[in-house]
């Protein structure tokens, strides 16, 4: 597939996906409700004017609103929120917050998962395999909302017991690096633990398949020590599929950390998603969709590039 074809196809996917999200949101959500509870109730004409100003007036024809929005997108303008902020600028700010969290979570999760998975495969059916298998199994069954809340409860207990306030459960922190770090620990763990569980299973299976392969036997037959065989021949090959999986996860997480961000009050993309729906911000919903689609497609490209690097022999 030519690079140009792929680029066109990906662009089409992003445009169609965000258009679809915009239309669904425009039909379903009700931005007018933001003014409903006010006392004194603002005159209808004023509300109409305010909504039209940001292209959210449901009294304007849907097609006109869509054309206004899409022509804005073509110029790089993702529209405005119901209270007049620029969607693009808002999301750009928040992307940084999310990126820090996701990077930390993914790094910890990947390192933990790959290590545990590799060791479990090497010690197949021994105690480490069984123990890690059990823990992984339990982790996979804990929903993110439960894990987040359990970690918060644990942290509060920990802080109370030690009389410190080391682990922070809300916000991003605005002090020095240490302050940011102690705000990051719990949400990063909330992301990392289930990821580590999934990765370790994935890596374990990849390793088990590879450890069975003929070339591992060849490597042993030529008299290489076991450790060398495992690292240089088995692990090296098993990392090929696992890396693809990791890369895709990174793309999916950019909007997928909704629960973590909301529970821990971190002003990222995932949290914005919730508030956007609550305040019926049609343009933000579409903007987030575009970001999510782009992230996933970028990660698809990154996965392909990594494949080329890791698999120079193009083995099937």
């Amino acid at each position: 597939m030519g690079i140009m074809v792929r680029l066109v196809n990906y662009t089409a996917l992003i445009v169609v996906a965000s258009s679809l999200a915009w239309l669904l949101a425009a039909v379903t959500l009700d931005p007018r409700a933001n003014y409903a509870g006010r006392t004194p109730a603002p005159p209808v004409a004023v509300v109409d004017a305010a909504l039209s100003e940001v292209n959210l007036n449901d009294h304007d024809p849907l097609l006109d609103r869509y054309l206004t929005w899409i022509s804005g997108v073509a110029r790089g303008d993702f529209g405005r929120t119901w209270d007049g902020l620029s969607v693009g600028a808002d999301l750009a700010d928040r992307a940084g917050v999310t990126l820090r969290l996701v990077t930390a979570g993914l790094l910890v999760g990947a390192l933990l998962g790959l290590t545990v998975g590799t060791l479990a495969a090497v010690h197949h059916r021994r105690w480490f395999d069984r123990l890690s298998g059990g823990v992984v199994f339990l982790l996979l069954a804990v929903p993110a909302v439960v894990l987040a809340n359990v970690l918060i409860i644990g942290a509060i207990r920990f802080n109370d017991a030690t009389g410190t306030r080391f682990l922070m459960v809300s916000g991003e922190g605005d002090g020095g690096p240490l302050d940011r770090l102690r705000h990051l620990v719990l949400p990063a763990l909330t992301l990392a633990l289930p990821l580590a569980a999934v990765f370790s299973r994935y890596q374990r299976n990849a390793m088990l398949d590879v450890l069975d392969a003929d070339y591992v036997r060849t490597a042993r037959a030529k008299g290489l020590p076991r450790r060398t065989v495992v690292v240089r021949h088995a692990l090296r090959t098993a990392l090929i599929p696992t890396t693809t999986y990791l890369t895709f996860t990174f793309g999916a997480l950019l909007v997928g950390s909704t629960v973590t961000e909301t529970v821990f009050g971190r002003p990222g993309l995932g949290q914005r998603l919730i508030t956007a729906i609550q305040t019926s911000d049609v343009n933000t919903v579409a903007g987030i969709t575009a970001v999510a689609a782009a992230a996933l497609l970028l990660s698809a490209v990154a996965a392909d590039v990594l494949q080329r690097v890791l698999n120079p022999g193009r083995a099937r």
């Binding site: 909007v255 998603l273 729906i277 969709t289 999510a292 689609a293 497609l297």
Partner: peptide
């Protein structure tokens, strides 16, 4: 590529 959570939540 559509964020499922978002679309399900919106609709």
């Amino acid at each position: 590529v559509l964020p499922a959570f978002l679309v399900v939540a919106v609709v």
